[in-house]
Design a protein around this nucleic acid. Structure first.
Length: 572
DNA sequence: CTAGGGTTAG
């Protein structure tokens, strides 16, 4: 009977079968595979969970498979946690729970990140010995990774009796998406040592980790493997390779991959490449690519426009960007908060503060913190006290407690020598529990990634690094460099302020590479925050005095320092 | 008392 129920059975045929089962008495058998199949059909193919539940309720003694069919249907329902309630009913009624039951309930809980339910399920799974099931273990690893508890994800992974390629992939992807790229790459290497052969999904996670770390050497190795194994027939893999090259600072290599792809480009391919040019400040190439995209009859989506606005922003193409923003609706793409944020940034950087403010007020949605922070940044650049106060007021009302907002406002006052107001901001900062996002940088040296935090002394050669910084400080002063201490806001004297600046992570990273290499190869630094004005000024001089090209990726874009100037033309 | 369930780029 079950074989009579392929996916394409119509609803009326299914109901006929149900009638047949009822009239022949089979419907009330303790085990009836056709009945379970019917329930599955109702929930999955006919999208009628309520009818499936109605049918289920007529079964006197539902089998595990009947329960599973309903639970599976509940995953996609508007109330996935209902699956957990059904599960509890099942246990209270002493119905037999199998690995599949747990799998469906876990997946439902994962959808809404129901953490406490997931933990209860985890303990059931352990007690029933279901961790021997590689698939269920993988679901659990993925679940913990998705709720951000990577320690638990790793523990489950370690405790699994049997692991297959998907188990490894789940944890690698989990680390990569959970901002633990170092762990992702370490696991990737461990997997190869243990003898598993990376597949498409593995390399996606590993490449994403390389992108985050700027791990170019490792990225190249993965690229070579992809070509050997012909994994580049997969668009997603190609897109990840393009992204990796772009984020490691090689827009040209990214474009080579883009051009010579043997599989069909997807919308994501175009968006990735446009974003690559945007990050590198190559606004014109981004706009050109957008033209080509139209010729290739690929319709842009919200991400395409975001990438374009970003490109115009970084290249200072104010009119082009504003025009694109205004043409979005006509192309059938509705601007979201991020598009508004980008335009506010575009206008703000160009000094058109009032227009930027008007854009925020014309928004159909509630402006978020980031938007006001963007405008505050522009107020600082153009020393506009009135608007800075107005915007800060908004930020305080919205409960901002990041140090950057306070620093910006204080900078605006400091520029006008309004010291009393500077002190007021400083006190407000103390009385609140202001969060400071810790800054850090990565550099790759002989294939090894080194991480530096601000003021870090944990590196084995920290003494040499700090000595090198002293030397740099001495040499650049001859070139008229003065520390821009307005980038610091602490209750400390000028000299300590200078020290606080001198130990920014990107400076440590650059100094480290200068003492470790003698050749004139470019220095690549990856930073989690935006580069500060002082580091920018200092690295420009280093590139000249030490005759080294220095490429810094900050949170938003690349800065390419060469012979004393930067590719961003000091517009960032 | 079939198998079914897990990992995926901008």
């Amino acid at each position: 009977m079950a074989s009579l129920l392929p996916k394409y059975t119509s609803l009326s045929h299914a109901k006929q079968l149900q009638a047949h089962l009822i009239t022949t008495g089979q419907f009330q058998f303790r085990i009836c595979p056709s009945r379970s199949k019917l329930l599955e059909l109702y929930t999955l193919s006919f999208d009628s969970l309520s009818f499936a539940i109605h049918t289920f309720c007529q079964i006197l003694t539902p089998s595990t498979n009947d329960w599973n069919a309903i639970l599976r249907g509940l995953i996609g329902s508007p109330a996935p946690t209902d699956a957990f309630l059904w599960y509890k009913t099942m246990i209270r009624g002493s119905y037999r729970v199998d690995a599949l039951t747990c799998s469906f309930v876990l997946k439902a809980c994962a959808r809404v990140l129901a953490f406490s339910e997931s933990i209860q399920l985890h303990s059931h799974i352990v007690r029933k010995g279901f961790l021997a099931d590689a698939l269920l273990g993988t679901t659990l690893v993925d679940l913990y990774a998705k709720v951000g508890d990577l320690d638990s994800a790793e523990r489950v992974f370690d405790e699994m009796v049997k692991r297959d390629i998907a188990s490894w992939n789940a944890l690698i992807s989990g680390f990569a998406q959970g901002s633990k790229p170092t762990e992702a790459l370490a696991l990737f290497k461990r997997m190869e040592i243990v003898g598993f052969k990376p597949n498409e999904i593995t390399v996606l996670g590993a490449l994403s980790a390389c992108s985050q770390l700027g791990a170019f050497k490792e990225g190249e190795k993965i690229r070579a493997y992809i070509r050997e194994e012909r994994l580049d027939m997969n668009v997603q893999v190609c897109n990840a390779v393009i992204d990796m090259y772009a984020k490691c600072g090689f827009a040209d290599k990214a474009y080579l991959v883009f051009e010579s792809m043997s599989c069909k480009k997807s919308l994501v391919t175009w968006n990735t490449m446009i974003m690559a040019f945007a990050m590198h400040g190559d606004g014109c190439k981004a706009l050109e690519l957008f033209e080509q995209m139209g010729q290739a009859e690929v319709d842009p989506d919200a991400v395409s426009y975001l990438a374009l606005l970003c490109a115009c922003n970084h290249a200072g193409l104010v009119e082009e960007g504003y025009g694109l923003f205004n043409s979005m609706e006509k192309s059938g793409v509705t601007p979201n908060v991020k598009h508004y944020g980008s335009v506010v940034d575009l206008l703000g950087r160009a000094g058109r503060l009032q227009e930027a403010y008007d854009v925020i007020n014309s928004m159909p949605m509630v402006p978020d913190l980031v938007l006001w922070q963007t405008l505050l940044g522009a107020c600082r650049t153009y020393a506009n006290v009135e608007m800075a106060e107005l915007v800060s007021q908004k930020l305080v009302e919205m409960g901002s407690n990041t140090d950057g907002d306070f620093v910006l406002l204080s900078n605006v006052y400091a520029a006008q020598k309004r010291w009393a107001d500077v002190g007021r901001v400083r006190n407000a900062m103390k009385s609140r529990d202001v969060k400071k996002v810790p800054g850090f940088s990565y550099v790759e040296e002989k294939g090894v990634i080194h991480k530096f935090c601000n003021g870090d002394k944990s590196h084995e050669s920290w003494r040499e690094i700090y000595a090198k910084l002293d030397e740099i400080r001495f040499r650049i002063k001859e070139y008229g460099y003065l520390a821009e201490t307005s980038f610091v806001l602490h209750d400390i004297g000028e000299e300590e302020k200078e020290n606080a600046l001198y130990h920014h992570s990107e400076k440590l990273a650059v100094a480290f590479v200068l003492i470790s290499t003698s050749t004139g190869t470019p220095i690549h630094v990856i930073k989690n925050l935006r580069i500060c004005g002082d580091c920018h000024a200092m690295i420009k001089l280093i590139s000249k005095i030490y005759d080294r090209e220095i490429i810094v990726r900050d949170r938003l874009r690349f800065h390419r320092f060469k012979q004393g100037s930067c590719s961003c033309r000091d517009y960032w």
